[in-house]
Design a protein around this nucleic acid. Structure first.
Lengths: 232, 232
DNA sequence: ACGATAACTTGATTAACATCAAGGAGAGGC
DNA sequence: GCCTCTCCTTGATGTTAATCAAGTTATCGT
């Protein structure tokens, strides 16, 4: 792998506190690879052979049963995924595919597990990471069970805006079809939900969103820090 | 606390591999207490002051936003809850209340965190526990997003039956109102869903359930190991 | 055993959301 | 430039699930 990529991976919270020797041996076993858009990386049900670390691009986590499919989450740089399956030496519960051209570090699962055994600091960092992942999914589940689809959209828009600088104007970070699936609705209903939000100051032009009446949008969305804050 | 309770807590996967000294100091700081039914133990938004370990009874995890409330999961003996919030020294994302009279071990959060710092084996056990918790929530989310309410009920009944011996007859482990909320539906719709399942061999008499045509019930439910198996 | 209370069921209605079927707008290829 | 294809939108319709309103059956306490 390119040595120029190592510092940014090293700076991931997951790796920053581990010993140099453990980190180096992990990196020596790892592959850094660039993948084109829309490429399937992992398939649910398959054994978790690698821990994936995304350094550039964007990855969609999704799941299927029977004919139905849904987006479970999006991964942004620098982020790791399928950590839980790797640690439990289990099969993946979710599939993953690139959204855009993406650069990924693939660390063989067995090396991750032995680093976990050998390096105490790494084991501890994993705990923090996993606890965070768990809490994210719990928040997603609360969002799904306690809100209507229009409320979910409104809150997601507020969150996008906040994450992208809070200027009240931003581009959707991925396409509407995927956003709909992530929010647990159909593309048709996402369109209609955007129309429902028009009176609340939500202007849509392609992927460009402008929020011109945050007060009234907040009134509808009623954001809840225990669902919408990513920091806690 | 009663010393007679220690062995069963010690045998929890979370504690079994930790050193005697770390375990003893955790237990010395802990309180073992019995609570009546329907008592609120923790409230979402409050700091996670204790790690809870349920040794007898049953606890419901639930969440609220605005006026709406939903059941997030049930805890059975011997099980720990709000581990993630304790480790992150964060606020609880879920509330908890006893369903029946229950016996609980309360371990101060700061002691859990220092045991986590001091005892390597404990830190590793926590990873396994957390990875398992994460995967459980992911499965719940797939269940919610990929299935209709009737399918969710059918699969839950199949799972109850399996967990309780696979005899085709069992009592619902908690009341229908809570089951409905856990499955993401109203009590009225749960009733109707049971009626929908009657032609598939689902007989209901109060809380007594009999599954008399597993083949046809499985045909409707189409259980998926990546959603319904608790072991993987 | 009795009444009071809560849990559950049923039916009627409404609301939310999905599906089906076109149409239109935009991006990329040549 | 135009064509093609995909993505998105809109409207009509159908399905699913929530709500409202009684009833009915259990459960609990005395």
């Amino acid at each position: 792998m390119r040595s120029s990529d190592i510092p940014e991976i090293r700076s991931l919270r997951l790796f920053e506190s581990m010993s140099d020797s453990a980190f180096d041996s992990l990196m020596q076993a790892a592959y850094l690879q660039t993948f084109p858009a829309q490429l399937d990386l992992i398939r649910e049900g398959d054994p978790a052979d690698f821990l994936y670390v995304l350094t550039e691009g964007c990855v969609e986590m999704y799941a299927r049963t029977g004919q139905r499919e849904t987006t479970m989450g999006m991964v942004w740089p620098v982020g790791a995924f399928i950590l839980a399956a790797v640690l439990k030496d289990a099969v993946n519960l979710m599939s993953a595919r690139t959204v855009q051209k993406s650069r990924l570090l693939l660390i063989p699962a067995s090396n991750v597990r032995s680093a976990f055994e050998a390096d105490e600091a790494f084991a501890r960092a994993i705990v923090t990471e996993l606890a965070g992942c768990f809490r994210e999914v719990v928040k997603e589940q609360k969002d799904l069970k306690l809100r209507s689809s229009v409320e979910r959209l409104a809150n997601r828009l507020i969150r996008f805006d906040r994450e992208m600088g809070g200027t009240g104007a931003f581009d959707l970070p991925y396409d509407k079809r995927t956003l709909a699936s992530h929010l647990g609705m159909t593309p048709e209903n996402l369109s209609r939900a955007f129309n429902t939000l028009k009176p609340y100051g939500v202007e849509v032009d392609g992927s460009r969103i402008r929020l011109t009446d945050m007060k009234s949008l907040n009134g509808l969305a009623r954001p809840d820090p225990l669902i919408d804050d990513r920091t806690t």
